[in-house]
């Protein structure tokens, strides 16, 4: 059979389902979709650690759960250390085959959880850390985080005073830990994403996967466009898809046929509505500069 999608061969997507219907995510939530895809890539046995984030709510309130893997709902800043603890326990029990996976938002990763994450990565504990980055504290109502991009409106960076600092470059921070595997991914490219989770599972040590995860509510985009907006983020090099092995081998895994202007990405979203044309131009330059730095490294290692 040939790919009826033409771009993706969806027959490659594993049929296993670990994320059930009836979850409490908002309509159009990319995070709930991402979870389903991630688990397709990871397979079993997998155990999840979820700190305070939208995913505290999404699986459902007690006694319900949408997740078909064991989950520990952990404290906000403890994803890294909880993972290390669980992994140590499994090692003691002779269950080293269990993949222990953290699933934290940008707040829990870039901000409050970065200390524990950094320590886990520094110890190179054998865990997978996933940050699904929706670029603000969405669960609490769209407050600014270190993952919020420059220029974005949030409820704590109002339109009259939007975020003036660029997004914290968590990828570079994690690369600096020289972990064995880092990847960026998004559910808009499900094949790429699943492949990265599969690969992550096969590697020992701390693995970090940074997912861009659109939040229609917080980004002020229509619910039906959450895949579209993530796709534009990739196509505009706002969120390039790549992987890094041992901080040495850099590989861009999805190379857009044609790089689109960031304006298309920004203008789709209400949170950037106030940006002037001049600001959009500056934005383009910032994105280009960052991508250029990355591109040089892709070149060197390919």
């Amino acid at each position: 059979m040939y790919s009826l999608n033409q771009r993706f061969n969806n027959q490659d997507i594993p049929e296993d389902e670990f994320m059930a219907s009836g979850n409490s995510a908002c309509a159009g939530c990319a995070a709930s979709l991402s979870m389903g895809l991630a688990l397709k890539g990871l397979g079993k046995p997998t155990v999840l650690v979820i700190p305070a984030c939208c995913f505290t709510i999404i699986p459902g309130a007690w006694p319900l759960t949408a997740l078909d893997v064991p989950v520990f709902q952990a404290a906000f800043e403890t994803t890294g250390s909880t993972l290390s603890g669980i992994k140590a326990a499994y090692r003691k029990r002779g269950m080293d085959d269990v993949c222990v996976v953290g699933w934290a938002g940008d707040g829990g990763t870039f901000d409050i959880g970065i200390q524990a994450l950094s320590a886990t990565a520094e110890r190179n504990d054998d865990v997978v850390y996933v940050c699904y980055d929706n670029e603000a504290y969405m669960n609490t109502g769209i407050q600014r985080s270190g993952g919020t991009p420059m220029g974005a409106w949030t409820t704590t960076t109002p339109v009259k005073d939007p975020k003036s600092e660029p997004k914290k470059d968590i990828d570079e921070i994690m690369i600096a830990h020289r972990i064995p595997y880092l990847a960026t991914a998004t559910a808009a490219y499900p094949h790429d994403m699943i492949a990265k989770f599969k690969k992550a599972r096969s590697i020992k040590g701390t693995r970090f996967i940074h997912l861009l995860s659109a939040c229609p509510t917080g980004w002020r985009v229509p619910e039906n466009l959450s895949i579209e907006v993530m796709r534009l983020a990739v196509l505009s090099n706002i969120f390039p898809l790549f992987e890094v092995e041992n901080a040495e081998i850099f590989r861009q895994t999805v190379i857009p046929d044609e790089v689109i202007p960031v304006e298309r990405y920004l203008r789709l979203q209400g949170r950037f509505r106030h940006l002037t044309d001049e600001a959009v131009k500056e934005y383009q330059k910032m994105v280009d500069d960052r991508f250029e730095r990355l591109r040089k490294r892709f070149e060197i290692t390919e």
């Binding site: 059930a20 309509a27 699986p59 006694p63 759960t65």
Partner: peptide
Amino acid sequence: CSVSTTSSLVNKTGTWK
């Protein structure tokens, strides 16, 4: 402790739309 074992399938979210 609050350990969930019931599938969310009982939660008919279709009513939201």
